[in-house]
């Protein structure tokens, strides 16, 4: 849920709206906000499944240190969504385990 009105920060500033594709579904986001914030605003809190036990993981540190929020972004796994700015048309997938690499290794 977005905080449209904040008693100290005031009204939410209008920014350019963009569209992200998350696991095939389209969601709205603001340009430049971290992908994780856009997903949280859309109510998506599980970002990946852990490799060994396939347990759900979400945002933990939000400053790019813990790598708990990594997802597959435009075919590249292990992208830290909490510090990666959202750009229009990005394709984002829930990362299962190590994820699939679009680029050949």
């Amino acid at each position: 849920m977005r905080i449209f009105y904040h008693p100290i920060l005031g009204k939410l500033e209008e920014k350019r709206k963009i569209t992200l594709e998350v696991d095939g579904k389209k969601i709205a986001a603001y340009e430049g906000e971290p992908i994780a914030a856009a997903l949280l605003a859309a109510g998506i809190r599980v970002l990946r499944m852990s490799p060994k036990r396939e347990e759900p993981r979400g945002v933990f540190c939000a400053i790019g240190r813990c790598t708990d929020c990594v997802m597959i972004v435009d075919g590249q796994p292990n992208v830290r969504t909490c510090v990666t700015p959202a750009r229009d048309g990005m394709k984002i997938q829930t990362q299962k385990g190590l994820g699939k690499w679009a680029k050949k290794l």
Binding site: R45, V46, L47, P56, R57, G58, V59, F60, C61, A62, I63, C82
Partner: peptide, 9 residues
């Protein structure tokens, strides 16, 4: 679990 996070986060 998703939803456990740092206070700073």
């Amino acid at each position: 679990l998703s939803g456990v996070m740092g206070a700073g986060a």
